[in-house]
Write a protein that binds this DNA or RNA. Structure first.
Length: 419
RNA sequence: GGAGAGGUGGCCGAGCUGGUUGAAGGCGCACGCCUGCUAAGCGUGUGUAGGUCAAAAGCCUACCGAGGGUUCGAAUCCCUCCCUCUCCGCCA
């Protein structure tokens, strides 16, 4: 949620944000609504003040056993008027709030302006693409020949885009998740949480998935609940409607969760194998920080995510997103793209964003500063990282001439756990 | 799913025979006094949001789980819903 007062003062900033983010909100209609609302609010308040005042007089008269019928007659008219005003005001507020929820966050000033990914900036690379002395196989061939993924049976029991991990594919998946969780806990100081995968509408609105992404998420009609597309949703909303003591900041959470995405309208686009699926696993980092620190923390989180790829010895690049590629709620985002040599392309495995106070406003997450003033925290999150494309990169990078896979040593202890 | 109890300020907790109760009292917190230090004691203050205003102060309005109703007037009465707890049922 954006700050309505700020919108009133600098509407051009928001018009630009809407245009640069390829959104459609009508800022001027919103301003008009706001104007109308304030006018009505004033009228309502004035009538209410009159009513409160006369009510006192009536009470006084009744106590003194005096006749109050004249005042009562006047008041029934005022009360009728208040009723009308109140319902008009209610409607207006509902409309205003709904519209306000469709205004995207302002991109940070330095974000490159552009309407598609061609305006993104590559910031740096780690390692170079590895070279091989034999013809490479891609993820699908490797997964099939090594029998650790079963797309057919996944399609049978659920539909396309629901992979089944079999035998050591399942074990590898679990090993990767455990490794990443422990890495963030032990080396980066995050606190683990395990939150629900199904949440209510308020929660989905708090982080900004609703109303915009309604069609990209799975909804359970009978209970009016939603399947989370990322752990960001449940973890960030953990502190919704709370006032956090300043000394508890920063809060650093890491959470594993499956993620559910309908990916509506994306059929046929990079959907081969594990590239784009409806259910996948992800380890997510979420932080609640003092507003002064959020941009320093953003850099730190990008580096936290990079550490995972470095630990696996994978070649990747860091991308700074342009305004058009920025998500609705984000002010600034970096993507990590890992190299998949068999497929011959870079794949996005992490997206790290600073939402500034946009989510905090929606979810009402505040802290009390040194002067005792209530302020919104800044929230950030980043994948650390998502598993399917990481697995593509791992098996394609570490394939051998025989069509097998020589996984990096760092994963061995996680694959050889004994009971 | 059924029955019962309950949801009041940072917390605890009155009020619930409708009218100076935004809300007693206590705890906590802040400041001051007192005190060798600490504790105790005394005094004062201590919600959030919206509006008005250039801004602050001030003033006005709203908020006692949420929404609606009755009434001149609702924390208090009525209805619907949500949540928590206890018991029963069902169940991994």
């Amino acid at each position: 949620m954006i700050d309505l007062k700020q919108l009133r003062q600098n509407p051009e900033l928001y018009r630009a944000a809407v245009a640069n983010k390829n959104e459609k909100t009508d800022i001027d209609a919103l301003l008009e609504l706001d104007e109308k609302r304030r006018k009505l609010q004033f009228e309502f308040d004035t009538s209410k003040a009159r009513q409160n005042q006369v009510s006192q007089e009536i009470a006084q008269k009744k106590r003194n056993r005096e006749d109050a019928s004249e005042l009562l007659a006047e008041m029934s008219i005022v009360a009728e008027n208040i009723k009308t005003l109140s319902s008009e005001l209610g409607n207006l507020n509902t409309l205003l709030e709904a519209t306000l929820l469709t205004v995207p966050n302002l991109p940070q000033a330095e974000v490159p302006v552009g309407n598609d990914e061609s305006f993104n900036r590559e910031l740096r690379r780690y390692l170079s693409p590895p070279s091989y002395s034999f013809p490479l196989k891609d993820q699908l061939e490797l997964a099939t020949s090594n029998r650790f993924l079963d797309f057919q049976r996944g399609a049978k029991i659920s539909g396309s885009g629901f992979p089944v991990y079999t035998a050591w594919g399942a074990k590898l998946e679990r090993a990767i998740i455990s490794f990443m969780l422990e890495y963030h806990i032990q080396k980066h100081g995050y606190q683990e949480v395990a939150t629900p995968y199904i949440v209510n509408m308020k929660t989905m609105t708090g982080t900004g998935q609703l109303p915009k992404l309604e069609n990209d998420m799975y909804h359970i009609d009978e209970d009016d609940l939603w399947l989370i597309p990322t752990a960001e949703v449940s973890v960030t909303n953990l502190h919704a409607d709370e006032v956090l003591p300043e000394k508890e900041l920063p809060i650093k959470y890491v959470a594993y969760s499956p993620c559910f995405r309908r990916e509506s309208g994306s059929y046929g686009k990079d959907t081969r194998g594990l590239q784009r699926v409806h259910q996948f696993n992800k380890v997510e980092m979420v932080r609640f920080v003092h507003p002064d620190e959020s941009y320093a923390v953003l850099q730190e989180m990008v580096s936290d995510a990079e550490d995972i790829l470095k630990a696996f010895g994978l070649h990747y690049r860091v991308i700074e997103l342009c305004t058009g590629d920025l998500s609705f709620a984000s002010a600034k985002t970096y993507d990590l793209e890992v190299w998949a040599p068999g497929s011959g392309k870079y794949l996005e495995v992490s997206s790290v964003s600073n939402f500034e106070d946009f989510q905090a406003r929606r979810a009402n997450i505040r802290f009390r500063d040194k002067d005792g003033k209530l302020r919104f925290v800044h929230t950030l999150n980043g994948s650390g990282v998502a598993t399917p494309r990481l697995m593509i990169a791992l098996i394609e990078t570490y394939q051998n001439q025989e069509g097998g896979i020589d996984l990096p040593d760092i994963l061995k202890p996680w694959l050889e756990l004994k009971v």
